[in-house]
């Protein structure tokens, strides 16, 4: 029964997200675009933290590197190609994840957390302290990439409504992709690794290889989010790969609920809306955000997604999508009416 309600809620949410740009004004459309990008980012981290049991505190490295790649690849005076710049950014993030993964995945537990943090910080200082890409000021993307299919331009990335739909399509595709992967033999292996890696090895799985591939997939998807974010803002700076960014996306995953597809969606939407709300109330908004996160950690160990009706226990499957987008979406129309946040979207 509840499963049926979930399906209805999911359909309503999708419908709301589809018609939203026709109703909302520029600010809110751009705000929801930002939230959808964070959904992609948080979902990619959830694959590591929630499903494989790898708590990474350096996930922004892949988000940021993809942003830097598209910024550096874009010519000064004219636009880069969308497909080539996207492929380079995502591929670059995947390659970086492979290199970092080869090293950090040899550690576990607290050492893994520290190692991921250390590599992300190295990257942060590489861009912050050298003039490769504008140092601490960052670097601009003067012209947004152009999306062409055989000479035809179906989507104009400079149009905020077009861009919204592009991001929405990517977010939906990423969630569907994760859903498929999690049902596959590969998905079963990574969840087995989280529950009992020792036993996985003794029944014949070389767990390192699977963790590495998982790390690369998560890095590539974080790169996709970083690419979209860089294109939206038209600027990248070292903050994009700093530990604040890594911590913030980790909080989205924890707040929403680890190990569920709905969790990162709920987490990204609710954390960003809370921040928006608190910023409109007080200068000390981070204090309020902190209180909410502490309360959720104390009373909702399974995150906000834990409030959703649980599916009957299956054969070791984790609850999936469900009414994920629904909750977040229905609340985004009830816009929190805050003052524009720190960053002014250029889209």
């Amino acid at each position: 029964m509840s499963h049926r309600y979930q399906q209805i809620a999911l359909l309503v949410a999708i419908a709301l997200l589809l018609v939203f740009p026709l109703l909302g004004d520029r600010f809110y459309v751009q705000f929801v675009t930002r939230m959808l990008i964070m959904v992609v980012f948080a979902s990619s981290l959830n694959l590591l933290v929630g499903y494989t049991g790898l708590v990474s505190l350096g996930h922004a490295a892949f988000f940021g590197i993809a942003g830097y790649i598209v910024a550096l690849y874009s010519p000064e005076a004219h636009a880069a190609g969308f497909w080539s710049s996207l492929a380079l950014s995502v591929g670059g993030a995947a390659l970086l994840a492979c290199l970092i993964g080869l090293l950090v995945l040899r550690t576990s537990g607290i050492f893994f957390i520290m190692a991921t943090l250390a590599f992300a910080e190295m990257l942060f200082y590489l861009f912050h302290d050298t003039s490769i890409a504008g140092g601490s000021d960052g670097i601009y993307i003067n012209e947004r990439p152009i999306l062409t299919i055989g000479g035809w331009v179906p989507i104009d990335l400079s149009n905020f409504v077009h861009f919204y739909y592009l991001v929405l399509a990517f977010a939906a595709a990423v969630i569907l992709l994760l859903r498929v992967i999690l049902q596959s033999p590969f998905g079963k292996v990574i969840v087995g690794i989280r529950v009992n890696e020792h036993r996985m090895r003794s029944i014949g799985f070389d767990t390192f290889r699977y963790k590495l591939v998982c790390f690369v997939i998560a890095g590539a998807l974080a790169g996709l989010a970083g690419y979209l974010s860089a294109v939206q803002f038209g600027v990248v700076n070292p903050e994009m790969l700093g530990w604040h960014q890594s911590g913030s996306v980790l909080m989205m995953v924890i707040l929403g609920g680890m190990g569920t597809l709905a969790g990162p969606v709920i987490g990204a939407f609710s954390l960003m809306m809370l921040e928006e709300l608190f910023q409109s109330m007080t200068k000390h908004w981070q204090l309020l955000t902190g209180v909410v996160i502490v309360l959720v950690a104390l009373y909702l160990p399974r995150g906000l997604a834990g409030l959703l009706p649980a599916r009957p226990a299956g054969n070791g499957e984790l609850p999936s999508a469900g009414s994920s987008a629904s909750r977040s979406a229905s609340s985004n129309t009830a816009s929190t009416g805050g003052a524009p946040a720190g960053v002014q979207d250029r889209v």
Binding site: I181, Q183, M200, G204, F205, G316
Partner: peptide
């Protein structure tokens, strides 16, 4: 899961 390890490789991402 134990039987799946006999697939040779579980780098199979799409089929349930």
């Amino acid at each position: 899961l134990a039987a799946q390890s006999r697939l040779g490789s579980s780098m199979r991402f799409f089929r349930p």
